[in-house]
């Protein structure tokens, strides 16, 4: 790799809010803020690893009731029915619209579980990193950031169905107790991805090649 210099090595700090590169003043013990947008400045997102782990574990805990409890309860003249996320996908697949089923399966099952696994992978691999994989891991992080929001899909479907199917004495749909848990999983995984700092991947890489050079 040709001479790459990071902002951190030159003592410079990038504003998290507006992206401006700044030189913090030499004075010790003062709270530094961005001259352009006035956000407080940090070289790396504060407590990135601990915060990301905490949010990730909380998301894992909520993920269990989100999948086991019904996300939607429908009632009609012919009895009532409860749907979990998985049974909703199965219903779509058996009722003929399999590409829609594939879409919902991707947004509601692959994206949240994949995001939990991939965030854990990123955090664990911070400690022992193979040099070639840093670029791939950065790309993985960007993909996570992009797809995370799409798991809100099921929340919106339940909201709309509950609003539309409100015909007294014929059919009604109500959101089930699993829905708030599922919403919680989406919010927590998004927060986890936001608190993760991808620059730590590259910081560790430099540190390790330096250590390897010394031995």
């Amino acid at each position: 790799m040709t001479a790459t210099v990071t902002a951190l090595e030159l003592g410079l700090v990038t504003c998290h809010s507006c992206g401006l590169v700044c030189r913090p003043p030499d004075r010790a013990g003062c709270k530094v803020f961005c001259p352009r947008c006035e956000a407080s400045l940090h070289a790396r997102k504060p407590d990135s690893i601990a915060r990301t782990w905490a949010l990730l574990l909380a998301a894992c805990v909520l993920y269990i009731p989100a999948n086991l409890l019904p996300i939607m309860e429908s009632g009609s003249l012919f009895g009532s029915q409860q749907d979990t996320i998985m049974s909703g996908v199965v219903f779509l697949a058996t009722s003929g619209s399999w590409h829609l089923a594939a879409l919902v399966f991707f947004a509601s099952i692959i994206v949240p579980s994949g995001k939990l696994l991939a965030m854990a992978l990123l955090l664990v691999s911070l400690r022992r990193s193979a040099p070639g994989s840093a670029r791939a891991r950065t790309r993985l992080y960007r993909v996570l950031e992009f797809f995370g929001r799409w798991s809100m899909l099921d929340i919106y479907v339940v909201t709309l169905l509950a609003a539309l199917v409100q015909i007294e004495s014929i059919a009604t749909i109500r959101p089930g107790p699993g829905a708030p848990f599922f919403g919680g999983v989406v919010v927590l995984t998004m927060l986890a991805a936001m608190s993760f700092d991808p620059r730590l991947i590259w910081d560790n890489l430099k540190e390790q090649t330096r250590n390897d050079g010394n031995t």
Binding site: P24, C30, V32, R36, L41
Partner: peptide
């Protein structure tokens, strides 16, 4: 005490 940092808008990190 709050201190403003010096901006270097000609570089990108």
């Amino acid at each position: 005490v709050l201190c403003a940092a010096v901006a270097l808008p000609e570089v990108v990190a």
